[in-house]
């Protein structure tokens, strides 16, 4: 399983459509970083609308993706986190404090554009 990464202008767009197992999550992390490196993308939107579970491992991978992308000069916005997923993250004690979020892909792109123009 590999998660497709689309390029749109300076942005990379990812919509996660599968129940993420650990290997797929780690592969995605690697793929995204090398794509940022190759494309010089300045923004990334990861859409989680179809993700109905985020456990501590996946939360860690996503948090690391955000930090690593940031180091490489690309801002990440997570979009479409389901209400049930947001609630379980709080139960897990995971607050994703430094992570930018938006309601959906479109809002995510708007947020990126605002951030990057500042």
């Amino acid at each position: 399983m590999r998660i497709p990464i689309l390029k749109l202008h300076n942005y990379l767009l990812i919509s996660i459509q599968t129940d993420l197992d650990d290997k797929t999550a780690i592969q995605f992390q690697e793929d995204l970083l090398s794509k940022i490196h190759k494309s010089g993308a300045t923004g990334v939107v990861i859409d989680l609308t179809s993700v109905d579970i985020i456990d501590s491992f996946i939360a860690k991978v996503l948090g690391d993706v955000v930090t690593m992308s940031d180091l490489m000069g690309a801002k990440v916005v997570l979009t479409g986190i389901q209400p049930a997923v947001a609630m379980t993250l709080i139960d897990l004690g995971i607050h994703l404090k430094d992570v930018q979020t938006a309601l959906d892909l479109e809002q995510g792109l708007i947020k990126l554009r605002q951030e990057l123009e500042e």
Binding site: P83, A84, M87, T88
Partner: peptide
């Protein structure tokens, strides 16, 4: 490793059948 995904999917099915709402289904699967 894949059994982790299998277990949580089966657990969610049980939870759904018993009548848990979506938030509790997500809590159980997590």
């Amino acid at each position: 490793e894949w059994d982790i995904v299998g277990a949580r999917q089966i657990g969610r099915e049980h939870a759904k059948k018993i009548g848990f709402g979506t938030v509790d289904q997500a809590r159980i699967a997590t």
